[in-house]
């Protein structure tokens, strides 16, 4: 990684690393960042209101996934473009739905997507923007800082995929 200070590298890495590695426990399941290097960070169960918040995000992910699926069925040529988005949301959903074991993961009726590439893409973009707003709001209101971090990553991922959908020429490069 370029740009590390010549004289304070260890201090910076340590300071950032400790914040990234605090254990995160939600409801009955765990979302575990790596173990703290010094093992001193206690697991802190978040307040119950966060479970409701995660359930809201889970429902939004299910809804957005249904839109992606419907768009792909309506316009199969969109599959290469939408598949990475759906895969990312599936991973987000797998992690978060496991964190609300007591809540039913809602089923979402397949929405009607207008025929035609442009209309289908527009519907997906609107859906992704709605998801982005919901995840961002959840991140800002989460009582647990570690949950907020996970949701911030989901929001950042959704924003990245949204940018790639807005301009399909962007974001097609290989990951660094």
């Amino acid at each position: 990684m370029p740009g590390r200070p010549l004289t304070r590298r260890t201090a910076v890495v340590s300071a950032v690393g400790s914040a990234l590695t605090a254990p995160f426990v939600l409801a009955a399941c765990d979302i575990d960042p790596p173990a703290s290097s010094d093992g001193s960070s206690p697991a802190t169960p978040p307040p119950p209101e966060d479970a409701e918040l995660v359930a809201t995000v889970v429902a939004e992910l299910v809804r957005a996934g249904a839109v992606l699926e419907a768009a792909t069925l309506s316009v199969p040529a969109l599959t290469p473009l939408l598949e990475p988005v759906a895969a990312a949301h599936a991973d987000h959903l797998a992690l978060l739905s496991g964190a609300v074991a007591d809540a039913d993961v809602p089923a979402s009726e397949p929405p009607a997507i207008a025929a035609g590439r442009a209309r289908a893409l527009a519907a997906v973009r609107r859906s992704e923007q709605r998801l982005q707003r919901a995840v961002r709001q959840a991140c800002l209101t989460a009582a647990s800082g570690d949950l907020a971090r996970v949701l911030a990553s989901v929001a950042a991922s959704t924003a990245q995929h949204g940018a790639a959908l807005a301009d399909p020429a962007v974001g097609q490069a290989e990951a660094p």
Binding site: A152, S157, A159, Q160, H161, A164
Partner: peptide, 27 residues
């Protein structure tokens, strides 16, 4: 969060690819 989102999106402008867990690679 706003700044993190900007940096995540700007990676695409710089030729990077969208990720599943930007900023949280352990996930």
């Amino acid at each position: 969060l706003t700044e993190a989102t900007w940096s995540a999106v700007w990676q695409l402008e710089l030729g990077g690819a969208a990720q599943t867990w930007p900023g949280a690679p352990e996930l």
